[in-house]
Design a binder for these strands. Structure first.
Length: 228
DNA sequence: AACCTGCGGGCTAGTTAGCA
DNA sequence: TGCTAACTAGCCCGCAGGTT
C-alpha cells in the first residue's frame, strides 16, 4: 500500500486527469477505503488545493482552478509529449511565444528523470524542422480569437479571396484549425449565411457577444470532419 | 505502558436527481 | 409532491503500528 505522501500525490494526479471523481472510484484506484479518500481530500485542501465536492446523485470530487497553476503531475508519456510539443511551438506559426516556448521546456527538462531526458534530447537532436517562410499569427490575436470561439463573440475581419480581393466579413466563430502550417478560423458567415473558413493571418476586430447557434456547432463539426 | 498517528467502519444529516 | 437512491460531510469509535 502507498504511504500517505505517495497516496496524496497519486490522488492529485487522478484529480488532474479527469474532471469528476466519485469517492468510490478514487478509493478503488488508491486501494483504500472511502473514508481515507475523504481524509486525503481534506489534506489536499489544507495544502491549498481547491478540491470541490458535489453532493447528491452523480456527485463527487473535482479539482478546481486555483489562483496559481498547481504542480502538474505528468506520467512519462505525457511529459515527453509536452516537451516535444513546446519545442515544436517555438518554431511554429504563432508569433510572440517563441521565447516562452523555449523557456518552458527548459524548466521541464530540468526535472525530467534521466531516462526521459534522454528520449526528449534524442528527439530534439535528430529531428529537423524546415523553416518555412509564410504568414504567422500574433499570439495575442490567436488567444483573443480562441476566446471569442469560447465566449461566443461575433468577429469582423478582412478576407482575401483567390483573386486578391479584400472584403470585410462578420462571422460567429466556431474553432481554430491548423492545416498546412497555416491557421484558419472556421465559423458561420452571417453575411453570406454559410459556413466559412478564413485564414487567421489577416486583421480581426471583435464586435459584440452573440449566442452561438446550434446549427453552427453542427455545421462546424461537419466541416471539421471534411477537408477545408 | 502511555501516547500519537493513520486507517477503516458505522451512523446520521444534508443535497441532488430521477421517478411514480 | 413525496419517495427513493446515490452521493458528500461530520462525528464517534476501535484497531494497529510506531514512538517516547
Amino acid at each position: 500500500m502507498l504511504d500517505t505522501s505517495a497516496r496524496l500525490l497519486r490522488l492529485l494526479s487522478l484529480l488532474q486527469s479527469r474532471r469528476d471523481w466519485p469517492s468510490a472510484d478514487l478509493a478503488e484506484r488508491l486501494g483504500v477505503a472511502r473514508r481515507t479518500v475523504r481524509r486525503d481530500v481534506e489534506r489536499l485542501r489544507g495544502l491549498g488545493y481547491p478540491v470541490h465536492s458535489t453532493p447528491g446523485v452523480a456527485g463527487g470530487y473535482r479539482l478546481g482552478a486555483g489562483a496559481e497553476l498547481p504542480p502538474l503531475l505528468l506520467d512519462d508519456e505525457e511529459a515527453v509529449a509536452v516537451a516535444v510539443g513546446l519545442r515544436t511551438a517555438a518554431g511554429g506559426t504563432v508569433e510572440g511565444i517563441e521565447e516562452t516556448s523555449l523557456r518552458a521546456p527548459a524548466k521541464l527538462e530540468q526535472v525530467l528523470p534521466a531516462r526521459l531526458r534522454h528520449r526528449v534530447n534524442a528527439l530534439q537532436t535528430h529531428t529537423v524542422r524546415i523553416h518555412r517562410d509564410g504568414p504567422t499569427v500574433d499570439a495575442g490575436l490567436f488567444t483573443r480569437v480562441a476566446a471569442a470561439c469560447r465566449d461566443h463573440e461575433r468577429l469582423r475581419f478582412a478576407y482575401t479571396d483567390h483573386e486578391g480581393e479584400v472584403t470585410m466579413r462578420t462571422a460567429e466563430p466556431h474553432s481554430l484549425v491548423t492545416k498546412g502550417n497555416r491557421w484558419h478560423l472556421v465559423g458561420w458567415d452571417t453575411g453570406r449565411i454559410a459556413v466559412a473558413a478564413a485564414f487567421l493571418d489577416v486583421g480581426f476586430e471583435v464586435l459584440e457577444p452573440v449566442e452561438l447557434k446550434e446549427r453552427l456547432h453542427a455545421l462546424g463539426r461537419r466541416l471539421l470532419s471534411s477537408r477545408i
